[in-house]
């Protein structure tokens, strides 16, 4: 029997067990915390910082998706300060690469765009980087456009944990980080890729898409992928 903990979220006592994350506890209690890199049933990594929360007595903001609950914790999921920082996180994502919604296959179906709208981000106050990044069109059916990648690593985790192929990884560091295929090969030459398309379906933006789709046509079915993992069957 897991140990029951006494946790308060936004002032309310909620059921919690040792080993759960703040996000899991909050979701089970019907409390909304915004997320972007997190995927149901897949190992969380805390890449996007959208899910930050305030924990009483802790001087910094903590990502709810990776922070385990502790007995006596009191968590705030919504405040002016949190909203400010969540907006900053989105603005950084927008400024880092080339997110041109108007010409994107995922326009109107994009989780980054939807989150920006939800949080009231209309533009980035930070200078856009406009990096020159490649588009990998080498795969027969899919395309990877690094310009639209937010490095959430959903593709990496789903490929490794659900498909078991582990085609994707992150190479380099900081702003130079890139999603790479096998040992940095064009996708079309990947030895490990099973062409299953799970990465495409869970990618939150238009970075991964099926080929041949025009502007706005790429809507995704990420839940079909994450449902494949039995609840609690985390690796």
């Amino acid at each position: 029997m897991p140990e029951n903990l006494s946790i308060r979220i936004d002032g309310e006592y909620v059921p919690a067990e040792a080993g759960q994350t703040i996000l899991e506890v909050a979701r089970a209690a019907g409390k909304y915390i915004p997320t972007l890199c997190w995927l149901e049933n897949i190992t969380p990594v805390g890449a996007c910082r959208l899910c930050i929360v305030e924990v009483a007595g802790v001087g910094r903001l903590l990502p709810a998706c990776t922070t385990p609950v502790q007995d006596g914790m009191s968590v705030t999921t919504n405040s002016e300060k949190l909203l400010r920082y969540r907006r900053i996180a989105i603005e950084f994502l927008l400024a880092e690469r080339n997110h041109q919604c108007a010409v994107c296959v995922s326009n109107n179906h994009c989780e980054l765009q939807a989150m920006a709208q939800k949080l009231g981000v209309t533009h980035s106050r930070y200078a856009y980087g406009y990096p020159r990044l490649p588009v990998d069109l080498s795969h027969e059916r899919y395309v990877l456009d690094h310009n639209r990648c937010i490095l959430c690593t959903r593709c990496v985790r789903v490929c490794a944990e659900v498909e078991g192929a582990h085609v994707w990884d992150v190479a380099s560091r900081g702003t130079r980080s890139m999603i790479v295929c096998d040992m940095n090969h064009p996708w079309g030459e990947a030895q490990t890729c099973t062409n299953c398309g799970k990465c495409v379906q869970v990618c939150p933006t238009g970075a991964m898409a099926e080929k041949g789709y025009a502007v706005e046509e790429m809507s995704k079915r990420g839940a079909n992928v994450t449902r494949l993992v039995r609840l609690g069957g985390r690796l």
Binding site: A102, V103, V105, P134, V135, L137, V143, K211, G212, Y213, A214, V215
Partner: peptide, 14 residues
């Protein structure tokens, strides 16, 4: 340059 050709109707419309 480097964009997939099938994106061109959307891009050039701009």
């Amino acid at each position: 340059e480097g964009r997939p050709y099938y994106e061109m109707p959307g891009i050039t419309a701009r």
